[in-house]
Write a protein that binds this DNA or RNA. Structure first.
Lengths: 249, 249
DNA sequence: TCATAGAATTAGGTCCGCCTAATTGTTGAG
DNA sequence: CTCAACAATTAGGCGGACCTAATTCTATGA
């Protein structure tokens, strides 16, 4: 067999000096997780509070403080103490690379290995840190370079671009309109299984029949069935209107 | 998106007491690498010297000493100080699980993702620690439960069994006999590419024409070509005789 | 038998990545 | 304007996994 030749010496010398280091050394799994989290949290606008990162990742605040310091030293984010954190261009690129890996993997597992959409998340969560860029591109290729993963999340492309689609949460779709579900914003297996059982997944079309006030449930028609969805679930279903209402009385 | 729910709390309480812990907590990548190395080294007989482990893994001797201590505390190996190290049943099981993962992954990458056999090793080396048992079984299933990987290495089965085949290194095959290459004992890409270029890979059949003394080269006929192989390479090709010689003059 | 080469271990250090406890900064309400 | 509430940081600790330097053990050959 095969004595393990050093793939890339971890405590390596500063490479061939003079050569521009195109590929940054390879981030640790932890760093990638932080970047992903910060990227996600920064989607709801403005700088991200360290406490939000801590809550999201289930880490203590001091852990986050420490890591934030390291990440800013690595040039992956900008930290204004007591204010918050913002990804630099490099940080965003790294986050998108990880996100791409994650979503390509999820798609591959579902399409090629028969995984159910509610069970791919933990697997992808681990593989995204282990897989090489070249394997991801091979997977993407055999999948035909998909733009969306099984949950409807957009897959960042290799060049860093990502098609963002405008959507409305089902909980806010006007009554009497037909919509298509584009995206399901949870990775909890139970919820995903329940939604799938109701016929609610990306690509499903449905018609909004009723909604009760004060965050009340929404009633929709899916195929021939009427379903009642609480506000919490309805808010997770991001939709695109396919009609302007009044088609079905 | 999805706040990461704890897949398995790392500093977890001692599980439900009374329940026999069928699945040991999940070994670290490092531990798995040590077990693989020790398993491999113990194939050439007897207890394994810590210095051999150190050399194989390219670690310092003290690092190995330390890890050996931990592994023996984990019940994965037996350590007779200043003597050597031997895997326990649990250690061997774990090593075989990792080996199975590695070889299934290599086979999958070659069969399903178009990897060349000389470039799968590093990828598998990382993935084997990240992949779940269930993903491995899915891969194995889509591959039709293969018994050998692209290098001809036997794949341990899920139950821990492994078909061992009796082989002779090409460097020791008697003259004037036809053999089939079963296994190629290197993972170095350059050597693998060179051998493949000569038509020498698992499944190739060849005829041994000549061998020079004192670890000299072996001349073989592969298809219509005669090839001369140095002792070092010839020793890496494990073969099975398909004739008892004298067929071809 | 005994000295000593070489293998193995112990001692002690580093970085990563998490933790808790203690401290400091910011801010908004009175 | 001050002070409490709470966010954030600093201080210090721990285990994993590596390292070098120093020490100890074993076994061999003179």
């Amino acid at each position: 067999m095969h004595p393990p030749q050093p793939t890339s010496s971890p405590p390596g010398p500063p490479r061939t000096p003079g050569t521009p280091p195109k590929r940054p050394p390879r981030l640790t799994a932890s760093v990638e997780d932080y970047l992903k989290a910060i990227f996600r949290l920064s989607q709801d606008g403005g700088p991200v509070a360290t406490s939000d990162i801590a809550e999201w990742l289930n880490f203590s605040a001091p852990s986050v403080s420490g890591m934030v310091k390291r990440l800013s030293e690595l040039g992956l984010l900008e930290h204004i103490p007591y204010k918050g954190v913002e990804l630099t261009a490099a940080g965003r690129r790294a986050a998108l690379r990880t996100l791409r890996r994650h979503r390509i993997i999820e798609t591959y597992l579902v399409e090629k290995l028969g995984y159910a959409w509610d069970s791919v998340h933990p697997e992808a969560e681990r593989l995204e840190h282990a897989v090489s860029e070249s394997l991801i591109e091979r997977m993407a290729l055999t999948l035909g370079n998909p733009a969306f993963d099984p949950h409807g999340d957009p897959i960042p492309q290799a060049d860093g671009s990502m098609t963002e689609v405008e959507t409305i949460p089902l909980s806010e779709v006007p009554l009497n309109s037909a919509v298509e579900v584009l995206r399901v914003m949870t990775s909890e297996p139970e919820r995903l299984r329940y939604l799938a059982k109701l016929g609610l997944k990306p690509g499903s079309t449905l018609y909004v029949l009723d909604r009760q006030p004060f965050h009340g449930p929404t009633t929709v028609r899916v195929g021939y069935k009427d379903r009642i969805l609480g506000h919490e679930l309805a808010a997770l279903l991001l939709c695109r209107r396919t009609s302007d209402g009044d088609q079905i009385a």
